[in-house]
Computed example of a mutant assay.
Amino acid sequence: MEIYIIILLLIILFSVWLHHYKTKQQKTLCVQGLDNITHIKLLISAIQTHRGLSSALLNGDQSKQVVLATIEQQVKSEIKYLEEQHTLDKNGRWGSFTDHWGRLKQHDKARDADNSFKQHTQLIANLLYLLEDEAERGHLNAGSFPKLPNIGFVWRELVVTTEIIGQSRAIGTGVATSKTCSSVHKIRLSFLQQNMQKTINSTLPKLSSLDRFTGEHKALLKIAKLKMQFLSSTIERELISAEKISINQDEYFALATDSIKALDSIFNHQIEQIQQII
C-alpha cells in the first residue's frame, strides 16, 4: 500500500513540475517572440521610410541623400540586434531579407523610382510575413491571451495598414516631388485610399484592449481615424483630382508619417498590454 502512495505522490510531483516547466517555457517563448516582433516592426518602419525618401531622391530631390544614410544606419543597427539573438536563423525569410537589403542598398540610387518602390515593397512584404511567423512561434494569439481576443489583428491587419499608408507615402512623395501624377499613380493611390477607408471602418473597431486600458485605447483609435481620414482627403484633393500638383513633398511626407505614427502608437499600446499579462 505504501508503495502505491509513494508512486502517486511522485506522479503528482512530476505533474506539478511539468506544469511549471511548460508555463515557464511558454513565457520564454512569448517574451522572445514579443522582443523579435518589436524589432522587426522597427525594421519595417525604417525600410518604409527609406522607400519614401528614395522616392523623393529618385524624382529629383537631392537633399534626401544625408537622411537616407541615417536611415540605413538604423536598418543596420536593427539587423545586427536581431542577428545577435540567433532566433531567426532557421527562418528562410530572414536570410532572404538580409540578402535582398544588401543588394538594394548597394544599387538603389542607380534604379528608377518605380523599380526602387517595387524592390522596397518586396522587402517589406517579406518582413510582414516574418513578423506574423514570430507571432505564431511565440504563441502570441488569443489562445494565450483570452483577454485580448483580437490580438491577431495586430500582427496582420494593423501592420499591413501601416504598409498601405507607407506605400501611399512613397508614391505621393514621388508625385509631389516630380509635380506629375500619371494615370498609373492615380489608380494606385485610389486603391490604397480605399484600403485605408476599409481599415477605418472594419479593422480599427475590432482591436481589443484590457479593461484598465480602455480609455487610452479609444483615444488612440480616434486619433488614428482622424489622421487617416485627413490623409485620405489630401490624397484625393492634392494628388488624384488636382489639375496641378502644388503640395510640397516634405509636407506630404510628414502628413502621411503622422498617420503611420498614429497606428504605431496603437501597435505599441497593444504590446504594452501583452507585457502586463505576461
Rank of each mutant, 00 (worst) to 15 (best):
S232W: 01
F267K: 03
S45I: 11
Q194A: 11
F14G: 11
L58E: 04
I71F: 03
S178G: 06
Q249E: 09
L88K: 04
H120Q: 07
Q122K: 13
Q249G: 14
G215K: 08
E238N: 00
I271R: 09
M1Q: 10
L148I: 03
K105N: 08
T203D: 07
S168I: 03
E238T: 00
Y252I: 10
T87N: 15
K147A: 10
A69Y: 05
E72V: 14
V154P: 00
Q74R: 05
D99V: 15
Q273K: 04
S265N: 06
R169A: 06
K24T: 15
L130P: 06
R212I: 15
V16S: 14
W94Y: 03
K261T: 14
R169G: 13
W101D: 08
H139A: 08
L220Q: 04
D108I: 12
N91C: 08
A135R: 07
Q167V: 08
L207Y: 02
S202E: 12
L9F: 11
F145I: 00
L158G: 01
K64S: 13
I247H: 02
K222I: 10
L192S: 13
K27E: 07
I223R: 11
N36K: 02
T162Q: 03
Q167Y: 03
R103T: 07
D35F: 11
Q270A: 13
V75Y: 05
S168G: 07
R111L: 09
R212S: 13
S96F: 04
T257Q: 11
H120I: 12
H20M: 15
L231C: 14
L210Q: 02
Q270C: 14
S208T: 04
F97S: 05
D133G: 04
N248E: 10
I271M: 12
I3P: 14
E2G: 06
T23V: 14
Q249K: 04
I124H: 02
T28W: 08
